Amino acid sequence: LKKVVALYDYMPMNANDLQLRKGDEYFILEESNLPWWRARDKNGQEGYIPSNYVTEAE
């Protein structure tokens, strides 16, 4: 899975979204639905995130 790091905080707009915290790492599960990607956080929560809020992890 592709790993990304959040560049900004993101508060979910609806139940399908995943909250982002700046500096945290996330795994990308699906990239087909631009600009929204399906992601999983370190706690196993899954949801959609804005792809322009993250960058690929080193």
Results as ranks from 00 to 15, higher is better:
Leu1Trp: 14
Leu1Cys: 09
Leu1Lys: 07
Leu1Glu: 06
Lys2Gly: 04
Lys2Asp: 02
Lys3Thr: 09
Lys3Tyr: 06
Lys3Gln: 06
Lys3Asn: 05
Val4Cys: 06
Val4Leu: 04
Val4Thr: 03
Val4Glu: 01
Val5Pro: 01
Val5Asn: 04
Val5Met: 08
Val5Ile: 14
Val5Ser: 04
Ala6Tyr: 01
Leu7Lys: 06
Leu7Tyr: 03
Leu7Trp: 03
Tyr8Arg: 13
Tyr8Gln: 11
Tyr8Val: 08
Tyr8Pro: 00
Tyr8Ala: 09
Asp9Asn: 10
Tyr10Ala: 03
Tyr10Leu: 06
Tyr10Val: 04
Met11Leu: 13
Met11Pro: 07
Met11Trp: 13
Met11Arg: 11
Met11Asp: 11
Met11His: 13
Met11Tyr: 14
Pro12Val: 04
Pro12Ser: 06
Pro12Ala: 06
Met13Lys: 09
Met13Thr: 14
Met13Ala: 11
Met13Glu: 12
Met13Ile: 14
Asn14Trp: 09
Asn14Glu: 08
Ala15Phe: 10
Ala15Tyr: 10
Asn16Ser: 12
Asn16Asp: 13
Asn16Gln: 12
Asn16Glu: 12
Asp17Leu: 12
Asp17Pro: 02
Asp17Gly: 15
Leu18His: 01
Leu18Trp: 02
Leu18Asp: 00
Gln19Trp: 09
Gln19Ser: 09
Gln19Glu: 13
Gln19Ala: 14
Leu20Pro: 00
Leu20Phe: 02
Leu20Met: 08
Leu20His: 00
Leu20Asp: 01
Arg21Lys: 14
Arg21Gly: 03
Arg21Ile: 15
Arg21Pro: 00
Arg21His: 14
Arg21Ser: 09
Lys22Arg: 11
Lys22His: 06
Lys22Trp: 04
Lys22Asn: 04
Gly23Thr: 02
Gly23Phe: 04
Gly23Met: 03
Gly23Ile: 00
Asp24Met: 09
Glu25Tyr: 15
Glu25Asp: 06
Glu25Met: 14
Tyr26Asp: 00
Tyr26Asn: 00
Tyr26Ile: 05
Tyr26Leu: 07
Phe27Ser: 06
Phe27Val: 10
Phe27Cys: 07
Phe27Gln: 06
Ile28Ala: 02
Ile28Ser: 01
Ile28Leu: 10
Ile28Met: 03
Ile28Asp: 00
Leu29Asp: 02
Leu29Cys: 05
Leu29Val: 10
Leu29Ile: 13
Leu29His: 03
Glu30Ala: 09
Glu30Asp: 14
Glu30Met: 07
Glu30Tyr: 10
Glu30Trp: 10
Glu31Asp: 12
Ser32Leu: 10
Ser32Ala: 11
Ser32Pro: 10
Ser32Ile: 08
Ser32Met: 08
Ser32Lys: 08
Asn33Ile: 11
Asn33Pro: 14
Leu34Ile: 08
Leu34Val: 10
Leu34Lys: 13
Leu34Arg: 12
Pro35Leu: 15
Pro35Gln: 15
Trp36Leu: 09
Trp36Val: 09
Trp36Ala: 06
Trp36Glu: 06
Trp37Ile: 14
Arg38Thr: 08
Arg38Ile: 10
Ala39His: 01
Ala39Cys: 06
Ala39Leu: 06
Ala39Gln: 01
Arg40Asn: 03
Arg40Ile: 10
Arg40Gly: 03
Arg40Met: 13
Arg40Pro: 01
Asp41Phe: 01
Asp41Met: 02
Asp41Cys: 03
Asp41Arg: 02
Asp41Val: 00
Asp41Lys: 02
Asp41Asn: 10
Asp41Ser: 07
Lys42Glu: 08
Lys42Arg: 11
Lys42Tyr: 07
Asn43Thr: 11
Asn43Pro: 02
Asn43Val: 08
Gly44Val: 01
Gly44Ser: 04
Gly44His: 05
Gly44Trp: 05
Gln45Glu: 12
Gln45Lys: 15
Gln45Gly: 08
Glu46Phe: 04
Glu46Trp: 06
Glu46Cys: 06
Glu46Asp: 05
Glu46Pro: 02
Gly47Asn: 01
Gly47Ser: 01
Gly47Ala: 01
Gly47Leu: 01
Tyr48Thr: 07
Tyr48Ser: 05
Ile49Leu: 06
Ile49Phe: 06
Ile49Arg: 00
Ile49His: 01
Ile49Lys: 00
Pro50His: 08
Pro50Gly: 03
Pro50Met: 09
Ser51His: 11
Ser51Ile: 08
Asn52His: 14
Asn52Phe: 11
Asn52Lys: 11
Asn52Glu: 12
Tyr53Asn: 03
Tyr53Glu: 01
Val54Met: 04
Val54Thr: 05
Val54Leu: 04
Val54Gln: 00
Val54His: 01
Val54Arg: 01
Val54Ser: 01
Val54Asp: 00
Thr55Asp: 06
Thr55Ser: 10
Thr55Arg: 13
Thr55Ile: 14
Thr55Gly: 09
Glu56Tyr: 14
Glu56Met: 13
Glu56Asp: 13
Glu56Leu: 14
Glu56Trp: 15
Glu56Arg: 09
Glu56Cys: 09
Ala57Leu: 14
Ala57Ser: 14
Ala57Arg: 11
Ala57Lys: 12
Ala57His: 10
Ala57Gly: 10
Glu58Ile: 14
Glu58Lys: 11
Glu58His: 14
Glu58Gly: 14
